[in-house]
């Protein structure tokens, strides 16, 4: 792991920026091109860069819960949205998740529309990040 001070400084600047950007992609995901999957990947690439520059234990400190549990949380979230609609008797799709379209259009320049699908997307986001970061983390630990 050839890390150097310059990389550390650079990473400290770039990683937060790209994480924010990933969030941005996620939230606008439904209207313009973006979405949970891409956001997940971008975030995981950012985390990997962080890992490469600062080492795995700092990554561990940074993440609220270890990335393995990301997957668990993501899956439960995705399943929850599915079940949520189903339990409410929304006969939309029995298996597919419901569509609680709450047009909470916050009256400001941007007509933000929140759809139940967002939660599902968040689930996807978490799983993707968890998987990618987890795998690469274990692989690089393997190299030591």
């Amino acid at each position: 792991m050839c890390t150097s001070v310059i990389l550390k400084v650079g990473a400290r600047l770039i990683v937060p920026l790209s994480l924010v950007f990933a969030m941005y992609i996620y939230f606008k995901g439904h209207q313009t091109p973006g979405g949970g999957f891409v956001a997940g990947l971008v975030a995981s690439v950012a985390l990997i860069v962080h890992r490469m520059s600062f080492g795995s234990d700092s990554l561990r400190r940074m993440l609220p819960i270890s990335e393995r549990y990301f997957i668990a949380v993501g899956l439960t979230l995705a399943l929850g949205t599915g079940m949520g609609a189903y339990l409410q008797g929304l006969p939309f799709f029995t298996s597919a998740h419901g569509y609680l379209h709450l047009p909470t259009t916050i009256e400001h320049t941007y007509d933000f529309e929140w759809a139940s699908v967002m939660a599902f997307d968040l689930g996807v986001f978490l799983v993707v990040t968890g998987v990618v970061v987890g795998m690469i983390d274990v692989l690089s630990k393997e190299i030591q």
Binding site: G29, H30, Q31, T32, P33, G34, G35, G36, F37, G82, F93, A96, H97, Y99, H101, E113, A115, S116, V117, M118, F120, D121, V124
Partner: peptide, 15 residues
């Protein structure tokens, strides 16, 4: 749920 058809498909129709 949104007009980004790809994402809609990925997440909503083919949830």
């Amino acid at each position: 749920g949104g007009n980004n058809v790809v994402n809609v498909i990925l997440v909503d129709f083919r949830g």
